[in-house]
């Protein structure tokens, strides 16, 4: 302790874990974790849902984006305990009975991924964007998708895929 740069107070050494009960991809799940646990780590480590990626861990890259109560949200800037009681959809919840979600299908057809690291965040962001914005033009799609960074820089395919889905009849949001 002599070299520690700050005092650890007694109550910090005795921090009770919190219960986190929520619905993920339609299934009721629960876990127990430290209050400081980020939702992205809870999904990956406690629930084994490693499709949600942790990139920057400060809200910039968008790789960790999932739907919380239907709205695309960063899970690296959300504590797991804040998500208790919510309905979450991750990349694992997009396909139905082995059939890809139309956005996944479009990403496949338009070559909208290379390494795939950004893809979960791209898909979730694109789905929420099209659910909340009808008939966007290309500029609006680019603006919305700038929420997620692709280090492979394959943006043109991503924009093409989102535009293609925007011209299809709307799909129901996965539960």
């Amino acid at each position: 302790m002599s070299d520690s740069t700050h005092q650890v107070s007694a109550d910090q050494l005795d921090i009770p874990d919190v219960d986190v009960a929520l619905t993920v991809n339609g299934k009721a799940v629960r876990g127990r974790c430290e209050p400081r646990k980020l939702l992205v780590d809870f999904l990956r480590e406690d629930l084994g849902l490693t499709g949600t990626h942790a990139g920057c861990e400060h809200g910039i890259c968008g790789a960790c984006t999932v739907l919380i109560d239907g709205r695309a949200s960063r899970t690296c800037t959300t504590l797991a305990v804040q998500a208790a009681g919510t309905q979450i959809v991750t990349i694992e919840g997009l396909a139905r009975d082995g059939v890809m979600h139309p956005m996944q299908q479009a990403f496949h057809e338009h070559h909208a991924l290379q390494c795939g690291f950004c893809t979960p965040g791209m898909l979730i962001t694109a789905i929420d964007f099209l659910n909340s914005h009808r008939n966007p033009d290309e500029t609006e799609v680019r603006e919305a998708m700038s929420a997620v960074i692709c280090r492979c820089t394959g943006y043109q395919g991503i924009v093409n895929a989102v535009l293609a889905v925007s011209r299809q009849p709307p799909t129901a949001l996965p539960e």
Binding site: G62, A72, T78, T125, D128, S132, A147
Partner: peptide, 9 residues
């Protein structure tokens, strides 16, 4: 303000 996903929260 930020992006759609940050405004959700």
């Amino acid at each position: 303000v930020g992006h759609l996903p940050t405004r959700s929260r």
